[in-house]
């Protein structure tokens, strides 16, 4: 198995605060990986570094062997890491379909004048993009909402739309920041089933931040536990469950 993502000694300072320190991560192809830890442990900061929102102070991030340090967020997205956000960030005043078309833009290449003059290449590529968008939306049964404005979707569907949008860039690694937040147990279960399907269907690795311990332990193949920005433990769910440090710091038993 080759590693999709290799993170070595990753760290970041905010002013005088060391938010993340010495983090190592190895995610294999098609793996479902969990990143857990108490509030403020630095999980979202890790996501922000992986996706180029923040520049790490030290350490390296490699995607399929390619160094990502110093790359812009949109470059990283195009190289194959895409994400969702903890506090949903959709293009609210655009339609559901347009939300997906934005990220599918990575699959089109017609130029400005082709677009303005509506040359044949425009029509061909737009048609292909729209078809792919609809098929992606159908994975989450959102095809019927395609022409609604994103802000008019119910909360759960907004979260799902964010995942669909993230798939539009054809990622090799998908980062999900608390995808089940605000969902009831049944919705959560459905979501997890869909994530499982997506992972198999599109052959991508998934890195998941989630608070629901049962859920993470249930579906993730490997887990890293963060605490105060440092790596507390790393291993299979069973190893994590029996790790005394984790129990002390996180489960509080």
């Amino acid at each position: 198995m080759t590693n999709v993502l290799e993170v070595r000694d990753l760290g970041i300072n905010f002013g005088g605060l060391r938010a993340v320190d010495g983090l190592n991560l190895d995610i294999e192809e098609n793996q479902l990986y969990g990143l857990i830890g108490p509030n403020g442990a630095g999980k979202t900061t890790v996501f922000n570094m992986l996706t180029g929102v923040y520049e790490p102070t030290d350490g390296t991030i490699k995607l399929n062997g390619q160094l990502l340090n110093g790359k812009k967020a949109h470059e990283i997205a195009r190289l194959g890491i895409s994400r969702t956000f903890q506090n949903i960030r959709l293009f609210k005043d655009m339609t559901v379909l347009e939300n997906v078309l934005i990220s599918l833009d990575t699959q089109a290449d017609y130029g400005l004048f082709t677009g303005i003059l509506k040359l044949p290449k425009f029509h061909a590529q737009e048609k292909a993009m729209e078809e792919e968008a609809m098929s992606l939306l159908s994975v989450f049964h959102l095809e019927g909402d395609a022409h609604k404005l994103a802000k008019n979707l119910p909360y759960g569907k907004q979260r799902e739309l964010e995942i669909v949008r993230a798939l539009g860039t054809h990622p090799k690694l998908l980062l999900l920041d608390e995808p089940a937040a605000g969902m009831n147990p049944q919705e959560t279960q459905e979501l997890m089933d869909t994530i499982e399907t997506v992972r198999k269907q599109f052959n991508i690795a998934v890195l998941l931040i989630e608070h629901d311990m049962k859920l993470v332990m249930g579906i993730c193949e490997k887990i890293t536990v963060l605490n105060y920005g440092t790596m507390l433990a790393c291993g299979t769910p069973d190893e994590i469950k029996s790790n005394p440090d984790v129990i002390k710091a996180y489960l509080g038993e």
Partner: peptide, 8 residues
């Protein structure tokens, strides 16, 4: 930010 994350 979402636009950048979507490759724009």
């Amino acid at each position: 930010i979402a636009a950048e994350a979507s490759g724009v």
